[in-house]
Design a protein around this nucleic acid. Structure first.
Lengths: 238, 238
DNA sequence: ACCAAAATAATAGCAATACTACCATTTGCA
DNA sequence: TGCAAATGGTAGTATTGCTATTATTTTGGT
């Protein structure tokens, strides 16, 4: 099998392969992990490792052992663990943005598009997601449990200047635009969307670990979607 | 000045001192920090330290240096840094609950009480807050920037079994009760409240560090309150 | 005021983490 | 074939997170 380089694959039952580039801000990595086998292996295995033992417990040493490589080699791709997390989370946001574009395409009603958006942010894996070397469900779990750590740090302003949170901002901006279509007079569309995106993760996490903080039942992601959709619709309705 | 022991003080202009106990689940600490001078010093200085350099950069060693004590002494009060964070955050939730009780007392309208609750969660320092050794504003900043780290860990289930998140749950339950009074048929009052509480922090953080994720302007906490109040009212209105 | 018990300080040490540096080997490709 | 880039292997350092031991101070009770 040849090396396809900087690509991600979506397979369809018909004989067609669509190649999608999921581009990450190049300052996040020292060397593009999509450009080599080791790089892709780092991404694949880091998702499995963080999903399994959590971000704080994960180290480049353990990751290197899992891959059969060395700490020093991983440091050639990512400056540190924090940058790796930012990379993974950015990848996730870009993937969601693609899913949103794809699944709202040719949907004329803004309300319908907003409903799709709420589903995309709360249960992305129900859309197409059989990617080559990225375990999308594990990545989703990581985002639910670890993504706030990407921006909740003292380096947030520097990281932001480097553009590390562009992917997140773009996704929120897309959905906020739909909100504006529905109600152009509402004053806080972006705040509403970022609240909904964070809530999608929180509610899913609470349902699993702190069930007294939500009525939503563990694993019932339809309920999360329903909750978010209802909130956003009521807020935007006049 | 005599040692007042396990107490917190609210001072009023009239000649009256009200003593309030802010009780934290006793498993969070090894030895009650309110029971000694050193303990209180640990709490006071840890708030200043975390506020200044952030939770990840803070260490017991740096804290000990700041106090003029030693790592080993701090370890007699808190098993580790994570437990200290849980202690501080729990203290904050208890304090908010007290503020909520106090400021909604004798307010007959549930809508009015909910509005007060939204203000309490988004700008707690506008209520009385001149405490003895706790810098409430710094603690609020810590909660905004670090509190999700208290539960976003692999130990969350164990910590929850120990009851470390009771304070948070109690506060949310109180506010959810007000929501049920306003609209007894709404299916997700607790989910709505936990979403609002987290959003209060997120929107404040975004306004300061990632302004493209919100319309709210940095420092304008009235806007956060307004945003939350509007959301919660529209969601609960029939 | 004095003694015993408790609390704290001082020091040391250890294993793990988060890197960095250096050099040897392999691989890709011109 | 040969050169450069990528990777592997090894080592080493500073810091972190924590424990243990002992010395000193503080305290509360008689």
């Amino acid at each position: 099998m040849s090396d396809v380089g900087e690509t991600c694959h979506f397979n369809y039952s018909i004989n067609l392969i669509i190649l999608i580039q999921i581009r990450i801000n190049e300052h996040v990595y020292l060397k593009d992990p999509e450009s080599s086998k080791l790089g892709r292996s780092i991404v694949t295995h880091s998702i499995a490792l963080i999903d399994e033992i959590g971000f704080e417990q994960a180290t480049f040493k353990k990751l290197a052992e899992g891959i059969g490589s060395t700490e020093a080699s991983i440091y050639r791709y990512f400056e540190n663990k924090h940058k790796l997390l930012i990379y993974l989370v950015s990848w996730y946001w870009n993937w969601l943005e693609y899913q949103l574009m794809f699944s709202t395409n040719n949907v004329p009603s803004a309300e319908d598009r907003l409903k799709i958006a709420m589903k995309v942010i709360s249960q992305p894996h129900t859309f197409q997601s059989d990617l080559l070397h990225i375990d999308a469900e594990a990545l989703h779990r990581i985002v639910v449990g670890e993504s706030p750590k990407a921006y909740l740090s003292k380096e947030v302003d520097g990281d932001n200047k480097e553009g590390y949170f562009m992917s997140y901002k773009r996704l929120c901006a897309c959905i906020a635009d739909i909100c504006r279509e529905i109600n152009p007079t509402y004053a806080y569309p972006t705040a509403l969307v970022s609240t909904m995106v964070e809530s999608a993760h929180n509610q899913s996490f609470f349902a699993q670990h702190l069930p007294r903080l939500t009525e939503i039942k563990n694993g019932n992601e339809n309920e999360v979607t329903e909750f978010l959709t209802e909130v956003v619709m009521r807020v935007l309705k006049n």
